[in-house]
């Protein structure tokens, strides 16, 4: 563990556990009971703001209750030391702030998550007109300031990246909206929080371009039957239309 040790930082203790507070114990929930705090098809309210980071070509910040993500887009710039490529390349980097999760994510060691970056890349890459940007690279840096479930991070990450790309003035085919769903008991809950996805049988994240009515990514894990999957996809797809109008409104307001 000492090999990836960075002396320039103030390193926390090697072992740490999150404190448990007495009043934190929420009432127990059992399978079959209705969802707490919101209806099963409701998503958490979205706060989205483009243009937060001045030195970036485009940027955006999203907050859906406890999920807080900032995104900066740099480029398109010339790709150096790379073989000729007639299509542009999209780099997605996802970093967790050390304090973003229940357990501390040590800088360098486990702050980067390639699987989330790949999920976001898959969702947005087909929306960007990379064919008009030969020999160039677009960098997207996503910082997760606070995380409330991986599914929520992927969905919010896709939305914020698409908004930042638009803010940067990069040509895209359409805005990408993304929504997550969890199969809990017999129900389908949209936009599950960390706790809810832990209680669920399986989760699904769907990213689509509502303007073109195409789906660019599906990311499902856990135990669902075929009916659940189809129902989740339908529910997410219709909710994505609402998310699309949120993004569009925010972008209009920012002009």
């Amino acid at each position: 563990m000492q090999s990836g040790f960075d002396r320039r930082r103030i390193n926390g203790p090697e072992e740490s556990n999150p404190p448990i507070f007495e009043d934190e114990e929420t009432p127990t929930w059992n399978v079959g009971m209705p969802r707490r705090n919101r209806a099963s098809v409701d998503i958490r309210p979205i706060f989205l703001q483009p243009g937060l980071i001045n030195q970036a070509t485009g940027s955006a910040y999203i907050e859906t209750q406890n999920t807080k993500i900032a995104c900066a887009v740099f480029g398109p710039r010339q790709a150096k030391n790379v073989a000729f490529n007639e299509k542009g390349r999209l780099n997605v980097d996802v970093k967790f702030a050390p304090f973003s999760c229940d357990r501390r994510r040590a800088p360098m060691r486990d702050a980067e998550d390639r699987s989330i970056a790949m999920a976001i890349h898959q969702a947005i890459s087909s929306s960007v007109r990379l064919d008009v940007l030969p020999k160039s690279v677009i960098d997207i840096f996503i910082t997760i300031v606070e995380s409330d479930g991986i599914e929520g991070c992927v969905a919010a990450g896709v939305i914020v990246a698409s908004t930042a790309l638009t803010d940067a003035g990069i040509e895209i085919f359409g805005l990408v909206a993304s929504c997550s769903a969890a199969a809990v008991g017999e129900d389908i809950w949209l936009d599950p929080s960390l706790r809810e996805s832990q209680e669920s049988r399986g989760t699904l994240v769907l990213s689509c371009m509502p303007a073109l009515s195409t789906v660019s990514s599906i990311w499902q894990t856990g135990n669902m039957n075929t009916g659940d999957v189809l129902a989740c996809m339908d529910a997410c797809n219709s909710r994505c239309t609402d998310i699309h109008s949120v993004i569009a409104q925010v972008l209009l307001d920012s002009i």
Binding site: S126, Q220, T221, N225, L230, D234, N237
Partner: peptide
């Protein structure tokens, strides 16, 4: 039968109907 995982990989898009058919 249980679906235990699903991923779309690679560039390109599909419509929802196509995906349902494929599933």
């Amino acid at each position: 039968p249980r679906v235990q995982g699903m991923r779309m990989l690679g560039p390109g898009e599909l419509t929802l109907e196509q995906i349902k058919d494929l599933v």
